[in-house]
Each structure stands twice: as C-alpha cells, then as structure tokens.
Amino acid sequence: MAQIEIRDLGIDYRKPKSNEVFSAVDSVALSVEKGEFVTIVGSSGCGKSTLLMAVAGLVSLTRGSIEIDGKRVDGPGPDRAVVFQEASLLPWRSVRGNVKFGLEMQRWSGGDLNERAMQMIRLVGLGRFSDYHPHQLSGGMRQRVNIARALAVDPEVLLMDEPFGALDAQTREIMGTELLRIWERAKKTALFVTHDIDEAIFLADKIVVMGRNPGHIKEVIKVDLPRPRNEAILDSEEFHELRKRLRAHLAEDMSSMQLVQEVA
C-alpha cells in the first residue's frame, strides 16, 4: 500500500467579503510510495500549496480524505514535517534554538535535544553557525536551518512548500543538489511544491502537474533519470523532453488565464 493516499480531495474557501464559495482544489487523487520524491508543479493559483498544507494537516478538507500509512489526517502530526517558503524561523532563537523548536513542541523523547539538533545542523552543513541568529545568515543558509528543523523531528514524510522560492537562481541550484544529498541519506518520503520546471524535474521521481480553476491534477509524470543526480543531467536528452512537456502544460494554463482576463 502507498504511504500517502489522497482520495477525491476537495477544498473550498469562503471569500471573506462576498461570502462566495471558491474551490481551491477539487477531485484530487494521488498515491505516493514510501521513500519517493514527488514534486508538485503548476502556475500560481493552481492550489499546489493548498494541497501540501492539507497533507500537513494545516488546512481542513471539504471533501475526500488523506491517509498516511493508513491513518486519516485530521491535523498536524509527528509523522510529517513542513519546510516553509520564507522566514518561518524564530528570529530571536539561534540556529540551534530553531532546530530544537520542533523537538520541544513534540516533547521529543529520543535523547538529548542539543545533541539531536547539532547532528541535524551538521547534516545540512551549518556546524560552524549553530549559535548564529537567522538575521545573520543568508537566504540559502536560512533554508538549510528550515530543512534541519523539519528533519530533526524524524518525520516519515517531508513536506516542502517552495522552500527555495525566495533564493537567486544559482543558490537555488546548489540547494537543490544539497537537498538531494540530504534526502538520499535521510530516506524520507518527500512532497515538494515548486513553480520552477527545472527544479521539479531535477528533484523528482514523480512530477505532479497541476492546473487551475479549480486546482486539479493534469498529469503525473514518472522521471527515470538515474540517481544520484548532479547538474550534468540538466543537459540530458530526457531532461529536455520532460522540460518541453511541462512547458506545454504551463503555457496552456497561461493562455487560459489570459483569456479569462480579457473576458473580465
């Protein structure tokens, strides 16, 4: 059985002013195997972040269900940890304090908190910076702390919501390679939301392409590029093919969006 099983998922929002009901995600079904790296890609407003937050248990479902290892999701749980996009680190805590935060919240009982935190900080390559505060770190380093904080609680599933979205292209590429290195050692199931096509292909075993109005899954693409991966695969034939396919999907979404704007 798959580790994450999403069935007929629908999430509606009520717009605060008009009281209009608006469907962010509808009829989504998806299974993710244990240890799989799945990226979710789509243009903005396709509900990809909402879907991820639903798996995290931070958004309530209107229809359908999400199960993890056969257990229904009805809130955050220690089997999942989230890496958020931007400054979701506590600015008044040091790197170590931040990595310990999740452990404190979950009343970690697996030994010394400091030791566990330091282990994770070294894993993401920030050993020398454990006493620094977030404002003293670069954007890339901050996201490493975010990843360390999530891995520290030893979740079954790692959920990442455009974690490198605020980084420049070069740092982003480095972080992608870094993430794969860490993931291959940590052996976690990963769900990774992005709007960057190259990132989506580079990281994935499986790419979920989403479309808009309401957010739905357009296609699930298997990626058979060999692992471990490095930047060299960006030039491979298969990578180009995948990129072309994803571009076509997103272009379709873009043109339908323009049409809506013209009509409006």
Binding site: L58, F84, S88, L90, W92, G102, E104, M105
Partner: peptide, 25 residues
C-alpha cells in the same frame, strides 16, 4: 502568522504558540 503556522505544523498547541511565539516576539 507564518511563525504561528510553522509552530502549528510541529504540533504546537495554542498555549505553546502563546508562550513560545507570541510572547517572545
């Protein structure tokens, strides 16, 4: 709000959020 949400994702209860996020902030 982002900090509160991150705290909730780690299972923080409202009292945890008050003591560990709202108050120090």
């Amino acid at each position: 709000r982002d900090l509160a949400r991150a705290a909730r994702s780690f299972g923080a209860k409202p009292l945890d959020i008050f003591l560990r996020v709202a108050l120090p902030g």
